[in-house]
Write a protein that binds this DNA or RNA. Structure first.
Lengths: 251, 251
DNA sequence: CCAAGTTGTCTAGTAGAATAGACAAGTGGG
DNA sequence: CCCACTTGTCTATTCTACTAGACAACTTGG
């Protein structure tokens, strides 16, 4: 008769985990298949209706799963055509002139920087040393999420001397770019002095901000930017979604 | 004003993952804390109302999370008193006389065996060799979930020769015990001939049956049971929740 | 251009998640 | 024993996940 589908009963939904929504299970299933390489980059996924019948699920539920995958940057959809796998990583060159907006724009994508929060705090040993300050000196701390085509690429914590850049937070909120924020202070030709790259896994907070699951790999990029004259301006600790970018170091 | 709490908005629920129910997130959070050792065995958890305010959540939601933890066998609750951590593992001795019901009963718990399914199938090379049959000979295959105090302990696949034990499935469904099923065939003094122990992680199917998350550790126990005279009776491939039992091998 | 196939959007209904509050039933300490 | 505290259970309400169906907007290949 098939009048009711009690959902938790039994049947074909072998991937249903208690307390996890159906669309999330389907999305995770596709993520795994894509990551394993079951779908090549650029390949078209089956039609939504086809996936729906395969999972024994309504098409709307599949659409939700696909929206999740798109938000994670794993696929993109074209109306009337289909949904396509997108696993190629954004090349992110690390050099003297390392500017997120420029790099993303050069790759033909739309760059975006959102300030999550800012505050004044005393410099710890690490930050003080990098910026040439004394421990405890006041510094501005910015938390910024950067995205390419609306897909989060990195979360970064940035510190600047509060003495010189006291209002950096407010200015960034308008400027939405570090380069334009520094323009405001008359700093134009800043350059990267050094970059330190390591790896880790997402914690709950960064996972949320990057729209990743917990325990996904991230590239940790610490750096120091200085003026043309070599004066320290800012130091950052960025966490990049390793599934979405590749750091390029020329030498 | 705080009239509405739109849930997804922001705020204190730092552990909320999109597509995962609140109670599940809380349960997972506690599981992790317990596994890490933040709560000793036998320790009392905070009162439900206290946990509720700490997470900024209704008490009912906490109760759901606690019910989940109880189902996973990580805690037990005592009305009027509190909820207590239970991380001690069931000692499961492997010897000549290895009977699930007896072992669990001896430890003061209630044993239970539920037949998930049974069918006839041709013996593969492995099974045929163990049972002294030819490849392709018909064998009875049973899928059994075993629990102690309603907490799933293991899932096991058992093969018996169909020639002699053709109706083992139907009989087990009544008897709910391998020992009593074999009694039915007049086999009384069977004994364990060998046991092979390895380790793996849960797949989606076993995770569901064992009420575990995927990628939790399991002990894989393969074995052969024989009659008092040494004739092969049955061979099994059991997957035991490594969080809930410890295998004891005397020598 | 047309037709088949695909994604996007809308409406509507059902079941379950989460909230809120109240009270019963049980425990434990003074 | 009594009282403070805890878990268990009930009712009611709101919001969302999921289902169902229909149609519009769009792409693609013949």
């Amino acid at each position: 008769m098939l009048t009711k589908t009690p959902r938790g009963s039994s049947g074909k939904n072998h991937l249903l985990e208690r307390g996890v929504m159906l669309w999330r299970c389907i999305a995770d299933d596709f993520e795994q298949m894509i990551m394993i390489g079951k779908h090549d980059n650029g390949a078209r996924l089956p039609a939504e209706s086809e996936i729906a019948t395969k999972y024994g699920v309504n098409r709307h539920t599949v659409r939700r799963a696909m929206a999740e995958l798109a938000a994670r940057g794993l696929v993109y959809t074209e109306r009337g055509s289909g949904t396509y796998v997108k696993t190629d990583k954004l090349d992110y060159p690390i050099g003297q002139r390392t500017r997120f907006s420029e790099i993303v724009a050069a790759a033909g994508h739309e760059a975006e920087g959102r300030l999550q929060g800012h505050r004044l705090e005393p410099a710890n040993e690490e930050v003080a040393q990098r910026l040439g300050l004394n421990v405890g000196d006041s510094v501005v701390r910015l938390e910024i999420v950067r995205a390419s085509d609306r897909v989060p690429i990195s979360v970064a914590t940035t510190w600047l001397s509060a003495e010189r850049y006291n209002d950096a937070g407010k200015i960034y909120r308008q400027a939405r770019s570090i380069t334009r924020t520094l323009d405001h202070y008359g700093v134009t030709g800043y350059r990267r002095k050094w970059t330190r790259i390591s790896a880790a896994f997402t914690d709950a907070v960064d996972a949320g901000r990057l729209r990743l699951s917990v325990h996904r790999p991230i590239l940790v990029v610490e750096s120091l930017d200085v003026t043309a004259g070599g004066e320290p301006i800012l130091t950052t600790r960025g966490r990049f979604a390793a599934d979405r970018i590749a750091l390029i170091v020329e030498s």
